[in-house]
Design a protein around this nucleic acid. Structure first.
Lengths: 132, 132
DNA sequence: TATTGTTATACTCTATAACTATA
DNA sequence: TATAGTTATAGAGTATAACAATA
């Protein structure tokens, strides 16, 4: 199964690179972080560690990079001075707005040779596997 | 979908590391190469490039490592002096024989919370996606 | 002149441990 | 004393280009 997963990722990540990676200068992990912030308003680095399946130092690097590009910002946590909140800037929200239709087109391209039911089944089974 | 694939890989690769990676001192790509040679008798590095989704220099490195451990060997290609054939040694065949039941147990563990039909569906859909 | 495989080089990712500041 | 985040360092993976041998 690991072999199948690895090989299934190849065309999907290729499509990502063509539609989003190269045109927008974003890496997969950057895109994932932007979408997580879009869905959750604000997240701490500690919360991002399991969500992105990264180590704490890597989260620092990714947040640094996207902050340097102006898409996200760090804010002090309201109740815990050790912690932070990471959230989208106005520019980041605008970027996500431009990304969404592109992501939809990308998904449609990859899903082209599947029925809607098959595609939904695949997503469901992968989500269940991820919770194992 | 790329996000789902990446997250589904986490528990699968974790199971690999526990069952095969650490006990046998093998990386995922090593295991894939051994299984490919088991199924195909002999393959050239050029054939391995797309099968393992690696670049030619990386194939050289992986073959070097497994050859150094005595599991595989290089032979001159019978009809093309530029090429080679990579194949399992006797020790490599014995290793694959020990790996197969472990791999079966590993797969059973990961598949535990899926029905046989669901697991087969997932494998089929991932294979179709890999051919996109 | 093209192809197979290797070597060289640089860049990115990843993991661990050490450090700071706050609790 | 424990936790959140960062910095430092080293190891592994990955990609590109240059190279040697053969076709």
């Amino acid at each position: 199964m690991g072999f199948h997963i690895a090989r299934a990722g190849v065309p999907v990540y290729d499509a990502f690179e063509r539609h989003i990676g190269a045109p927008f200068g974003l890496r997969k992990v950057d895109y994932s972080l932007l979408m997580l912030l879009q869905a959750n308003q604000a997240l701490t680095p500690k919360q991002l560690v399991p969500l992105l399946a990264l180590t704490p130092p890597k989260v620092t690097m990714v947040v640094d990079r996207l902050q340097g590009q102006g898409w996200i910002a760090r804010q002090p946590h309201p109740t815990d001075g050790r912690s932070q909140q990471v959230l989208l800037t106005a520019a980041g929200q605008a970027l996500v707005g431009r990304l969404l239709p592109v992501a939809q087109a990308m998904e449609a391209e990859v899903a082209a040779r599947f029925s809607a039911a098959e595609w939904a089944t695949l997503a469901t089974l992968l989500r269940r596997l991820a919770r194992a």
